[in-house]
């Protein structure tokens, strides 16, 4: 047993030494050819297997890297999208505030800028503005936007005020047609629209597209604040009054900031608003 083991060892070592000797004595060509004859096909197979295995492994690594990179890039894109949205939001806010500030500077009466912090969009239509008793806001203070009238303060709390919107069914504003000076009342409707009513049939000559502004009567709203434009006119023929539906100049659903008019002025304010005529 032991002899066989050592015999095997000696044989193996002998083959190795023979191969090495043949290679170094320059007779390696013959030995190499001999070995090559046996090993070349094996080497070819090995190389092919090696290449495919390495190829598969490299493909796997590439795939893994691409996947990781994909995850990273996706996260980066999401981050950029959020940043972009934030920037767009800030830009929009900046634009709105600039316009509000410009209006504030133009108006000949005291104002307080307020931010909309809540909305009621049910039976009542109102906004909650972050200005209240502490800011000397009083009940019936008009709330405006750069485009025109938003509503009036109906409730004042310590740090906030409730602004009743023009579109609230309980809202009524004394108004006039800017072009013809025809007076009437603008009322809110349950479906969120406004209507200009109680205008006299004779001499009204109201037309679609006419701008309706506050009349200044009643002492709540200064004169000349844009309310809306006439969208359609309903003439009931025999009725004493007819009415018009209005498209409000202020999109109250999207309003974010308002100006509260804490002072009063007898001036007509319409020239201070940017109305497309």
């Amino acid at each position: 047993m032991r002899i066989r083991q050592f015999g095997l060892l000696v044989a193996a070592l002998g083959v190795c030494l023979l191969l090495l000797t043949l290679q170094t004595r320059g007779e390696g060509t013959t030995a190499g050819q001999l070995v090559g004859f046996v090993t070349t096909p094996l080497q070819t197979v090995l190389t092919k297997v090696n290449r495919s295995a390495v190829g598969v492994w490299a493909t796997y690594l590439d795939w893994k890297n691409v996947r990781a990179e994909n995850h990273r890039l996706r996260a980066e894109v999401e981050e950029r999208q959020v940043e972009s949205l934030r920037a767009r939001d800030v830009e929009a806010e900046n634009g709105r505030l600039r316009r509000l500030l410009a209006l504030r500077d133009r108006l000949p009466l005291a104002t307080i800028a307020g931010e909309v912090i809540g909305r009621e969009w049910g039976w009542a239509r109102s906004l909650v503005v972050n200005r209240g008793r502490a800011d000397s806001v009083l009940r019936m203070t008009p709330a405006i936007a750069p485009e025109g009238l938003v509503g009036r303060v109906v409730e004042v709390r310590s740090g906030a005020s409730i602004v009743q919107l023009l579109t609230d069914p309980a809202s009524t504003v004394s108004a006039t047609v800017e072009r013809t000076r025809t007076t009437g009342i603008v009322e809110g409707e349950p479906r969120g629209t406004t209507r200009f009513k109680y205008m006299a049939r004779d001499g009204a000559a109201i037309q679609v597209g006419d701008l309706i502004v506050t009349s200044g009567l009643g002492g709540v709203f200064p004169k000349g604040i844009p309310i809306g434009r006439v969208r359609s006119i309903f003439d009931r023929g025999s009725a004493l009054f007819h009415y018009a539906t209005l498209t409000p100049v202020v999109d109250v659903a999207r309003i974010e900031e308002v100006l509260l008019l804490t002072g009063q002025t007898p001036q007509d304010l319409v020239a201070h608003f940017s109305t497309d005529r």
Partner: peptide, 25 residues
């Protein structure tokens, strides 16, 4: 051990293209 050493060493030598027999030995 001896046979596997010889065979794997020989394969390595063959694949590596160096002195055939060195690693086998």
């Amino acid at each position: 051990g001896c046979l596997s050493g010889f065979a794997t060493g020989f394969l390595q030598d063959t694949a590596a293209g160096g002195f055939i027999g060195a690693q086998a030995l």
